[in-house]
Nucleic acid binder design. Structure first.
Lengths: 360, 360
DNA sequence: GCGAATTTTTGGAACGATCCAAATTGGGTG
DNA sequence: CACCCAATTTGGATCGTTCCAAAAATTCGC
């Protein structure tokens, strides 16, 4: 039925073999091969076998690009992460990747490095490549006006962070509640002056965590003291940088809730270096519960966010929307767990709780 | 020239707008638009502007899938990493991603989780999606026979690891030389009995590092002692697990070269817990120099591999091959740097060296 | 053994880009 | 003004798939 002067099909031409080559080999039409590919029940069992065999003989490889041209799903999801050198976001990326695999999707990855311009580029590039949807952990300083047109008509899930003006689905931890519980824990351990360390006011996530901190203070009827709030970079150095001010305060804090674990670890090390015994003299709780939190000395108490689960949930939501065709924004808040270890002072309860968690 | 009854072009139909819609709007033919897209110098400046404007008015998005059908480069590179929960490989992934960006490529990512079956799946999937090349850090236990046919006709760079029977380009650190220098350093500090800890004999990378260890012993005319070699998992637990045997040895080692930093850190912690003062009683050197190495107590000396550079070099090699069309395998070995910190005993020199490095 | 009903199979005509050969335009020149 | 040459522009065929309407093969009832 098809030209095919040489018995080899397209193979002689150098490229990959096509559906037509397979058809020739199996002695059927390309339409039948297409039906086999799509797993249709229309095709007779014997024919299906003949076609399948021809495929493996020719080393046929499906050309998804051609298929998408006719409207088939591309099977590609874009994943734009703001900072892959932060272990928390790596965990999230792993969760995303994992969930994509089970859903037969394949993820494009891009690291925006907190650079909005680059983020714009990569999102555009992902669209060009036919990504069906996007999981986005937006870079700080993103211009919604520039980004929005690139996202039209495609389901997007913002994960962990969210941009104020951008109406998409959101998967995020219960930051406020987590921070509230952590702060309450410090207060319950007898700390009357609890500092809040790390991040900047412009960060939405910090606003949430800070709100939880305030709430816990209110609930304990402790007056909020502005001078116990420290804005810093959200890395080791940021945590360490706070120590001099923290210690020279006229009425020093005896505990701190940190914006994230990296800040908390920086703080712990610098406090240790300054001769403050974290865990007894001073209580510290971090946020995220990255793996390293278990290995610091003293081990770091933290509000566990489970980045992997967050990533997984984001992809699952995205896949659900892709399957249904209904891209109506949806918000999923993931509960957090307060993991008590030695750093917050009640060393006694540390072992038990931490063991329990590792069973998960 | 084209149907287009409604002024809106394809927009009314729901989908994205096409090259023909742009052509209609700009009052030219689709061929001209195609020329503009490819940046051809044939098209007159005024026309180019008109077309560009029409594109942005319509929110036109280039459909790469359609283009590849006619033979255009796909602009996609696959990146298959064996274990993303290992910070070293994350560094490598970051390097790969970064290099792809500058080369206008976009990387598919897959985490094989050291699972050969999954690796097979994802490689197949990447081919289907038209990946032009592959950066592969192969999973342990990969069957070359199964993998090879999936790779035919496509340039592949194995990075960090290499599969014995698979002839592709390779980018790897100078493992043997690094291990030799590290071992020599321990010997020079007066350690006569140096253990080798971590990994399994089947791992090619370990074979290389082990060879370097043996070489240093030979050069120092120290007899090799089989009982000082410990095979373990390459994670924290693996490092820790070795300690009982290490300490109960009839003639215990006083230093250890570890397969990688994660093993070394596990070892240091467990030794610390057992009351051995690492840095004075016992010398430890790791491999990779992950960020955490700077933060352990004592800080970990390590053979720095620079995973990021490794990833970058791999992609650059791949892009070079893609550009030239010459897929002849090539091997690039990257030199390592021995970074001395407190863990190997010569605490005096630690500060200076480590400062110097952080300037990079 | 024949038409009807059912099950399988099959030719195109798309999809959105590229690319080539051919057509059109616009100057110069003699 | 006719002609040539260079600079631009343009139809149409093509890439590898899907999908539809219709054809072909098979089974069935009587």
């Amino acid at each position: 039925m098809n030209a095919g002067v040489d018995g080899q099909g397209a193979k002689g031409r150098g490229g990959r073999s096509t559906i037509v080559d397979v058809a020739d080999r199996a002695g059927v039409s390309k339409s039948t091969v297409s039906l086999v590919l799509s797993g249709s029940s229309l095709v007779a069992e014997a024919t299906r076998e003949r076609v399948t065999e021809a495929m493996s003989e020719l080393g046929y490889i499906y050309h998804r690009g051609a298929a998408t041209l006719r409207g088939a799903r591309s099977g590609v999801i874009g994943m734009v992460i703001n900072d892959l050198s932060n272990p928390f976001f790596v965990e999230m990326a792993i969760g995303i990747e994992q969930a994509c695999q089970v859903g037969e999707y394949i993820p494009f990855i891009a690291n925006s490095v907190e650079n909005p311009a680059r983020q714009l580029q990569v999102v555009r590039s992902m669209r060009e490549h036919g990504a069906a949807g996007l999981v986005l952990s937006p870079a700080i300083g993103t211009s919604v006006a520039e980004l929005k047109p690139l996202l039209s008509g495609m389901p997007v899930v913002q994960v962990m962070r969210r941009l104020p003006g951008l109406k998409t689905s959101i998967v995020a931890p219960e930051n406020k509640d987590g921070a509230r519980r952590a702060t309450a824990q410090l207060i319950a351990s007898g700390h009357g002056r609890v500092a809040f360390v790390g991040g900047f006011q412009s960060m939405v996530v910090r606003q949430d965590r800070f709100a939880g901190y305030r709430l816990a203070l209110d609930e304990a009827e402790i007056a909020f003291d502005e001078s116990l709030v420290f804005e810093t970079m959200t890395n080791y150095a940021g945590g360490a940088a706070v120590v001099p001010q923290l210690l020279s305060h006229h009425a020093p804090a005896t505990a701190a809730l940190c914006f994230n674990d990296v800040v908390a670890i920086g703080l712990i090390r610098a406090l240790g270096a300054a001769g403050v015994a974290v865990g007894s003299d001073f209580g510290v709780i971090g946020f995220d519960d990255i793996e390293e939190a278990q290995h610091t000395l003293p081990a770091l108490s933290s509000v566990a966010v489970n980045g992997r689960a967050l990533g997984t949930k984001a992809v699952q939501l995205l896949m659900r929307q892709l399957a249904s065709g209904d891209f109506e924004p949806e918000t999923i808040l993931c509960p957090t767990t307060l993991v008590i270890r030695a750093s917050c002072g009640t060393a006694a309860s540390a072992t038990a709780k931490s063991e329990a968690r590792s069973e998960e």
